Amino acid sequence: MTAALALDRTLAALADPCRRQVVDLLARGPRAAGDLAREVGVPAPAMSRHLKALKDSGLVEDSHPAFDARVRVYALRPEPMIHLLRWLEESERLWSEQLLAFKAHVERQA
C-alpha cells in the first residue's frame, strides 16, 4: 500500500466522530469491544462496524485473550498515526513558507 493510500484510509476512518472517540479511548490502553461499545454509548453491532473500519484502515489491531476466544481486545497501532503526523508536519511547513513569502511580498509593497 502506498503512503498516500494509507493516509487516505487513516483520514477516512478518523472522519467519523464515534471512531475518533474510540481512538481516544484506545490511546489510554487496549479495551474489549463490548467495553468500547458501552463507553461510547453505541449498540454492539454499530461498534463492530466502527472497529472493522478502524481495523481495515490499520489504526487498530485485535487479539483474543487466552481465557476466552470470543472476546476481542482492540489496541492502537502507532504506524498510521506516525504517517498522519508526518503529513501534517509537512503541510504545516509548506503553509508556513507560503505565509512567510506572502508577508515578505506585502512588506515590500508597503
Rank of each mutant, 00 (worst) to 15 (best):
L84W: 04
V106R: 15
L94D: 10
W87H: 14
L94F: 02
I82A: 12
L85N: 11
E61R: 13
V71Y: 00
M81I: 01
L85W: 05
M81R: 06
A66L: 11
V73H: 05
V106Y: 07
S57Q: 14
L51V: 10
V106S: 08
L94T: 12
L51Y: 08
E97M: 08
V106Q: 10
A66W: 08
P43Q: 12
A53I: 09
E92F: 06
S63C: 11
A101T: 09
A46E: 15
V60K: 02
L94M: 11
E61K: 12
W95P: 00
A37R: 05
S57C: 10
A69C: 07
L84P: 02
E89T: 13
V73R: 15
A44D: 12
S63N: 06
K52S: 13
M81Q: 10
P43T: 07
D56I: 00
E89K: 14
E97A: 15
L76A: 03
R77M: 10
D68M: 04
L59G: 05
K55V: 09
A53L: 15
D35H: 15
K103W: 05
S96V: 07
V40Y: 00
P78K: 05
E90G: 08
V106I: 11
V73P: 04
L76E: 02
E39T: 09
D35N: 11
G34F: 01
S63M: 09
L84A: 05
R72Q: 14
P78I: 03
L94G: 05
L94K: 12
F67I: 13
P45H: 04
K55R: 14
S57N: 07
E89L: 11
D35F: 01
S57V: 06
V73Y: 01
R72S: 09
R86G: 02
L76N: 03
L99V: 11
L54Q: 06
P78G: 07
G34T: 15
A69S: 09
G41F: 06
L36S: 04
L85V: 03
F67G: 06
R70Y: 03
L59P: 04
S48N: 14
A101K: 11
W87C: 02
E39V: 03
E90L: 11
R93E: 08
H50Y: 14
E90A: 12
L99K: 06
R93L: 09
L94A: 13
H83N: 06
A69G: 06
R86I: 02
V71M: 05
W87L: 00
A66E: 13
A75G: 09
Y74P: 00
A104Q: 10
E97S: 14
P80E: 07
R72W: 03
R77A: 10
V106A: 12
H50M: 05
L54V: 09
L54Y: 06
